[in-house]
Nucleic acid binder design. Structure first.
Lengths: 217, 217
DNA sequence: TAGATTGTTAATCGATTAACAATC
DNA sequence: TAGATTGTTAATCGATTAACAATC
């Protein structure tokens, strides 16, 4: 097999996002017993263009069979490998307020091979506890705990005012991917990837469209 | 004042999203007592381009003063008006599992004029309760409850398998903005705006970058 | 007025889509 | 082989950025 592990072009983040969506679809198809699928069929499910599906996949290799399409199970395996889902990732959670506690109970992490391996808070009454199987540490100990356990992914669920300080600790600990729920823009070195889940911004965007509909009618 | 309420061009959704981000920044500036700000200053805070800031604002009118910039308080007021934040929106929440319950306690809604006015679940032991001040109804009653209370925004926090059925009810009830936490693509008429918060997709995206970093090193 | 910054047009950039030769 | 669909190049589209006249 010729080495095609490293992409030849810069890969748009939106293409990566779509890969997870294709993957979800492949899982459904596989459950239905569908053995092969064309880019056209995949695209239709999401209102996308078939060329886009083929192009997204082509960033990573040649997975299809001309005249036939893609073998469902084979493509699923390839996407899992590309997305790094064939291994378990340990994740740190910082902040155990309302949102953080909800995330601790959220099963979506486990289901997909993300294991919450350590939680952090600055409330002394929480530090030292175990919630489920997850040990709670003081936020001061982010660096040593993450380094020892080689944790590379983190979720931030602290108030906006504390988020940058926490981020700096995570970066110092060698984290390279952050899921950020704090409503603030984090500043990080280029090697670190941040995904923002800014409910406040999303609500305001929806408010805009609702207000516009109200005016229009 | 000449009517400029209706935009002359189609407005990119990303521009709307940025308006909320500018607004957050203006609030900080105002708290600091800063009276005016230039597009350059606004842009620097987010690593954006100053032309983009001016262009985003220009979709909605002329808010600046040449040679000076934008008056902080005045621009804040204008953005709030544009985003529909000068009124309170009532919001319905569907699904009271882990995530839904966490959202019920989430203060970010209240803080910004979004009031959770009704919650829905299909668990008979929950129906009829009040959680905080929020009444819980059976999901079967979405249409009458939302119509009576004229609720136009909804949050979906049900399992993926139930999300489309819930969506159809919300659409029938006249909702025109949905915040969707279910990991599935919803199909809605064009007049309805959906914002997806797909944690599963975001985690997979982060997994990709983490795996790539691991390979690179 | 001189200096600064807007609002807007034109240029650039990147992502999406169309088209088609390659090939199963 | 004939029909279908990929992988990839070229065309299109839309969003970002540069440039600058207007003007405070």
């Amino acid at each position: 097999m010729k080495s095609q592990r490293l992409a030849r072009h810069r890969i748009p983040e939106r293409a990566i996002t779509r890969l997870s969506i294709y993957l979800r679809c492949l899982e459904e198809l596989l459950a239905d017993g569908t053995l092969a699928v064309s880019s056209q069929q995949l695209a239709e499910r999401f209102g996308l263009n078939s060329a886009q599906v083929r192009k997204d996949l082509a960033y990573f290799g040649q997975f299809g069979v001309r005249g036939l399409g893609y073998y469902t199970g084979e493509l699923k395996g390839n996407l899992e490998r590309i997305l790094g889902l064939n291994q378990q990732w340990e994740v740190a959670l910082v902040g155990l307020g309302n949102l953080g506690s909800a995330l601790l109970n959220y099963r979506g992490f486990r289901q997909r091979g993300f294991r919450l391996a350590a939680a952090f808070d600055n409330d002394p009454s929480k530090v030292g506890m175990r919630i489920g199987r997850v040990p709670v540490f003081d936020v001061e100990r982010i660096v040593p705990v993450l380094k020892r356990r080689r944790i590379k992914m983190a979720v931030i669920a602290v108030p906006a005012a504390a988020a940058q300080a926490v981020t700096d600790q995570l970066v110092a600990a060698g984290v390279n991917a952050i899921l950020n729920f704090a409503p603030t823009q984090l500043s990080v070195p280029k090697r670190v990837k941040v995904q923002n889940v800014d409910l406040s911004v999303m609500l305001k965007t929806l408010s805009f469209y609702t207000a516009r509909s109200a005016r229009a009618s």
